[in-house]
């Protein structure tokens, strides 16, 4: 219980600092600044990794559900899908796999060297 509160506090702190950075610098969204800040807090041992591990594992296992409302938003795009649907979906499909292949193959080669 204590560890969960400890984790939540540090996650909220990182996110709050992320918002502060975003307000000053702009650029990346607040949550990505928050991710970088959380990494640094852990790295400099300001936040103890052992105490947050269990909560983080739980969070990673369940975070997918947070993407559901945005995904359901696709249902609002019926007219769009009707008009260009097949071409849109095929382009997204093909280019996504091209990028996966590009990065995956090249990075694995670099690693093997």
């Amino acid at each position: 219980m204590f560890n969960a509160l400890y984790s939540i506090s540090f996650i909220c702190l990182s996110l709050a600092l992320g918002y502060a950075f975003y307000a000053v610098l702009g650029g990346l969204p607040p949550s990505l600044y928050g991710m970088i800040i959380f990494t640094l807090l852990l790295h400099f041992r300001l936040c103890q990794a052992e105490k947050v591990k269990a909560s983080i594992d739980w969070g990673i296992r369940h975070m997918g559900v947070c993407f559901v409302p945005a995904g359901v938003g696709i249902m609002n795009q019926y007219p769009l899908i009707k008009q260009h649907g097949l071409a849109l979906v095929s382009i997204i499909f093909i280019t996504t796999f091209l990028v996966l292949t590009f990065v995956g193959v090249l990075y694995q080669r670099l690693e093997d060297r």
Partner: peptide, 30 residues
């Protein structure tokens, strides 16, 4: 969809802390 989006806004709000926790694996591999 609008009604659904409003009803589930706290789930979407959790997206931000969810992205923050990815800082942990990042720290592990730093």
């Amino acid at each position: 969809y609008h009604a659904y989006k409003q009803s589930t806004q706290w789930l979407s709000a959790l997206l931000e802390p969810a992205v923050v926790i990815l800082g942990y694996p990042l720290f592990q591999q730093l």
